[in-house]
Simulated assay, not measured.
Amino acid sequence: MPLSTGPCEAWPTNLCCEIADGMAEEDVERWTLVASQILWGLSGRRLGPCPVAVRPCRRACLDAAPVSFQAGYSGGPWIPYIDTGGVWRNASVCGCKSDCSCGELCEVRLEGPVYDIVSVDVDGEVLVQEAYRVDSAGLLVRTDGECWPTCQDMAAPPGEPGTFTVEYRIGLPLDEAAVAAVSELTCHLLKGCAPSGSCGCKANRNLTRMVRQGVEMELPDPSLIYAEGRTGLPLVDLWLSVVNPYRLDSPSRVYSPDYKRPRMTTWP
């Protein structure tokens, strides 16, 4: 999953609290975004669709094997060869089969989790959605009988002849529980907000003990709660315990020297 510092946009909410009189709409939107950023981080940085555009590289079936192998050798089901990195490999000569396919399966791997595909552009032509599908693990599979380009002109801008660009949204979908959690946290951050009040971290904390004679009050130490990756809000913390029970800071990753990562333009 690409490095990101927060969700691309505020999560949807269904606020069950009253907005203070005189509060501007942009203030509500700002604190909703703050609540979304907090829960995005505490839940493992996986939720919420975020648009990305990549220039994938399709892995050739036989990589850098001798040309005789690629020309259609039929002496057996597997042929050992040494790739350009000096690593021994077994090349399938039966159409580059995949795990469950009897023939060649044309696919490229996308950084996941893939929420949906926005568009696929090959040589300046946007393919129809019926020309591809997404399989588990972020595999974009060509289904119209054609195959993805084995190489492309990386110096040319996307959409030009000789290029291959995939625009998609990355991240897990937000369910009703996520909406309820971000709504509760947003209401907490908005507590006390008014033209003459304060919001956010200055909102009143939960009272744990009060002695009525002498008016002695005890408030919890928020640093202890935050150190556990929790907020002190019951619905929010219950949701976090479900979606991130092991309190992971980020999604797990598996790296392979054989995997060609898609190229992503970050500037300009």
Rank of each mutant, 00 (worst) to 15 (best):
E107M: 10
G112S: 11
S119Y: 15
S119G: 12
D121G: 14
D121K: 09
V128P: 07
V128W: 06
E130R: 05
Y132I: 01
R133P: 13
D135M: 14
A137S: 14
A137G: 10
G138K: 03
R142G: 02
E146F: 14
E146D: 14
P149Y: 02
D153Y: 06
A155I: 04
A155C: 12
A156P: 13
P157E: 00
P158M: 03
P158G: 02
P161C: 12
G162T: 03
T165S: 12
I170Q: 12
G171Q: 00
A178P: 01
V179S: 09
V179R: 06
E184K: 11
E184L: 10
C187T: 01
K191F: 01
S196A: 08
C199Y: 01
C199M: 07
G200T: 11
G200Y: 08
C201L: 08
C201S: 08
C201T: 01
A203M: 03
R205C: 07
N206K: 15
T208D: 00
M210R: 14
G214F: 14
V215L: 14
L219M: 05
P222K: 02
I225G: 10
E228Q: 13
L233T: 01
L235E: 11
L235T: 05
L238P: 01
W239S: 05
V242S: 12
V242L: 13
V243R: 09
